[in-house]
Simulated scan of single mutants.
Amino acid sequence: MKRCTESFTIWRDGAPVAFTAGQLVDDKHPILKSHKHLFAEPQATAGHAPPAQLKPVEEATASPGENRTLTPPAAPADSSQTPFDPGEHTAPDVIEYLKGADEEERARVLAAEAAGRGRKGILGDAGSKE
């Protein structure tokens, strides 16, 4: 990996190709043949990843006849969301939530309400616990 030390643009195959200061490129990138003086070894600094964890910037397009490699986004640290629990909310809040829920979610929440507090204000005549 090499880090670009200053921003610059070159013309390649009739199109501008821009490199920005701080951008990482692979050691085998063709730009290093002609502009190696504008790149340096990446250095770890406070608050930044060490060089072993650095990833290159994804190029926006592939050259003609070349497939583009996509890098999928990393999953958020806490990607699990707690499902809506009607027992933790007031009846008006549950009713408001149900208005925006799809059919499957409404069925799940109503089943949870029936198994839990069973409030008539939410379940109608089917509810009899509260």
Rank of each mutant, 00 (worst) to 15 (best):
V109E: 06
Y97F: 15
E59V: 10
A18M: 07
K55P: 00
L70G: 12
L98S: 07
A46H: 09
P86W: 05
G65D: 05
I122A: 10
A74T: 13
T9M: 05
K28E: 12
V57A: 13
T61I: 06
F19I: 01
S63N: 09
I31V: 15
H48E: 13
K129C: 12
E6K: 15
L24H: 11
A74Y: 05
L32K: 03
A52K: 11
P64Y: 07
L123T: 12
K2Q: 15
H89E: 02
W11F: 07
A49V: 09
G65Y: 00
E41K: 09
D26G: 11
G124L: 13
G100C: 02
A91G: 12
F19G: 02
A126V: 15
A91K: 10
I122V: 15
A77N: 03
K33H: 11
P50E: 10
R68H: 08
S63G: 07
H35L: 01
V17I: 06
R119P: 02
D26R: 15
K99W: 14
D27P: 07
G118E: 08
L24E: 02
F19K: 02
S79Y: 11
D102V: 07
S79G: 07
L54Q: 14
G22C: 09
A62L: 05
E66R: 10
A46S: 06
T61F: 12
Y97E: 13
R12M: 02
A101L: 12
P92N: 04
E96G: 11
A40T: 14
A49I: 00
A21G: 04
G116E: 09
D78F: 14
K99E: 15
Q43Y: 08
W11N: 12
S34R: 12
P56Y: 01
V109G: 05
G87I: 01
T90H: 04
R119E: 14
H37N: 09
T69S: 04
D27F: 08
A40L: 05
P76D: 14
V109W: 04
T69Y: 04
A111M: 13
D125G: 12
E113W: 08
Q53S: 07
P42Q: 04
R117Y: 02
K33Y: 03
E130Q: 12
K33W: 04
P56V: 14
V25D: 05
A77M: 04
Q81V: 15
P73Q: 06
K36T: 01
A74H: 06
R106E: 07
E104L: 14
E58L: 08
R108E: 10
I122R: 05
K55W: 00
V109T: 11
I31F: 00
P83K: 10
E58T: 12
Q53M: 08
A40C: 12
I31S: 00
L110H: 04
G65M: 04
H48F: 07
K120I: 15
R119G: 09
P92Q: 09
A21L: 03
A91E: 12
D125P: 10
E104K: 15
F39P: 00
R68C: 00
V25A: 08
T20Q: 14
E59N: 10
A75K: 11
A112Y: 04
H29N: 11
H29D: 15
L24C: 08
L24V: 03
R3T: 14
P83Y: 08
A49C: 01
D93M: 09
D102M: 08
E58I: 03
S63P: 01
A101D: 13
